[in-house]
């Protein structure tokens, strides 16, 4: 459903990525993982139509996306505190994009209620973002995307700003809702473990100017578990494979990248 061909972008003379091609099929969860500065966010912004890349083509359902946001797409940003509107309640934020759609008030309210329930916030609809923890706020942002019923959900480092415990919870939440509601998701992360744990496929980007270093299928059972899956042999070998592709050889460089990402 999403076909990206030969995408390239540069900021001035600084080429961030060149010749990126990837596809996302209906119902898939694809993770893009890459070192910092390889233009992951730029790539996602291009796909979402928020910006126009210098070269290449993006097709969503065969329709070109060029600098115009398609109507059936939702983006979940990393920084939930600047993505949720503080003047709206949780329910108000979830309802925000629905007002544009041709829905009756009852349908809209039902979608809001349902989406908040899916993310485990059925009782928090009246709270305002600033009364909620970071994890709760990001759940609201996910609920907002789900309620919009997008054909494709784009997630830009969605769990990078929450603590480790919350992060595990939100990862499992994402796996659960996509399984229950057949979402198609393209998720960008710098976290190798996360990409393998969440993805049906992992697209590995190289250092800038980035290209696709590998596009791997994740051969793990659909039902994943934070403890067991991460300890399984398949997971461990996949994650080292991705790490090798990401960092190449040379440990000092690896440390550098890790440090830069902190």
């Amino acid at each position: 459903m999403l076909d990206v061909t030969g995408l390239g972008h540069a900021f001035g003379a600084n080429q961030v990525f060149t010749d990126i091609s990837l596809t996302v099929n209906e119902g898939e969860l694809v993770c893009i993982v890459g070192p910092s500065g390889c233009g992951k966010s730029t790539l996602l912004r291009s796909i979402s139509g928020l910006m126009t890349p210098k070269s290449g083509e993006i097709l969503l359902h065969g329709q070109p996306v060029r600098g115009k946001v398609p109507g059936d797409l939702a983006v979940v940003f990393q920084d939930y505190s600047r993505s949720l509107y503080p003047w709206l309640t949780a329910a108000g934020n979830v309802e925000f994009p629905l007002k544009r759609l041709k829905l009756t008030t009852a349908e809209r309210k039902e979608r809001v209620r349902e989406a908040l329930e899916w993310v485990g916030l059925a009782d928090a609809g009246k709270k305002r973002p600033r009364q909620m923890s970071g994890g709760m706020q990001q759940r609201v942002a996910i609920a907002r995307a789900l309620a919009y019923r997008p054909a494709l959900m784009l997630m830009d480092e969605p769990f990078a700003s929450v603590d480790a415990q919350t992060r595990f919870e939100l990862e499992d939440l994402l796996l659960r809702v996509r399984r229950e509601h057949d979402c198609t998701v393209l998720l960008v992360t710098h976290d190798i473990d996360e990409s393998v744990y969440l993805g049906d496929r992992v697209v590995v980007l190289s250092r800038p100017p980035a290209t696709v270093a590998a596009d791997m299928k994740v051969e793990l059972p659909a039902q994943r578990d934070q403890i067991k899956t991460r300890a399984s042999e398949a997971f461990v070998s996949l994650r080292s494979e991705v790490a090798r592709l990401l960092h190449g050889s040379g440990n000092s460089e690896e440390n550098e990248t890790e440090a830069a990402e902190e």
């Binding site: 993505s83 925000f96 994009p97 544009r100």
Partner: peptide, 11 residues
Amino acid sequence: QYLDTARSFGL
């Protein structure tokens, strides 16, 4: 990002 969010939902 407030504006990007609105734009990404087609406002």
